[in-house]
Nucleic acid binder design. Structure first.
Length: 117
DNA sequence: CTTTTGACTACCT
DNA sequence: GAGGTAGCCAAAA
């Protein structure tokens, strides 16, 4: 279901869309979930195209490893990302996700990609 | 086929 | 503690 011939992009979109409401994840975590652990930048690059993808992916739920809204400037209104996150129930202050560890959603663990038999 | 870029991450200064 | 550089992979030009 992941890493289809479509490319890593489809895999990224798939994982991001699997992020439950009120949760956030890091690019590196997604990259690791799709098998491109070293390609965290690829995830971000894929997110750049996510605005035109269907169904649209909740890119606002994707932050960097520090919980910082690095890509907020790529949204139509940069503040939209924080607005959406707060709408999800996540506290965002100073472009940073508060209580990041609590709202962090690990695709490797929650989504159980490894499929441990 | 070579070069550039990109919403990252980690290490080093 | 903060800032800068290097490394990483993948896709578009």
């Amino acid at each position: 279901m992941h890493k289809d011939k479509e490319g890593i992009y489809a895999a990224v979109y798939d994982v991001v869309r699997c992020i439950p409401s009120g949760r956030v994840t890091s690019y590196g975590a997604i990259a690791a979930a799709i098998g491109a652990a070293s390609g965290a930048r690829l995830v971000g690059y894929a997110m750049n195209f996510s605005h035109n993808e269907t169904p649209p992916v909740p890119a606002h739920r994707v932050v960097n490893s520090k919980g910082l809204l690095t890509g907020k400037f790529h949204f139509s209104p940069p503040e939209l990302m924080a607005e959406l996150l707060e709408a999800e129930g996540i506290n965002v202050t100073d472009n940073k996700v508060q209580n990041f560890a609590a709202v962090f959603w690990n695709p490797l663990t929650e989504l159980d990609i490894n499929r441990v038999a």
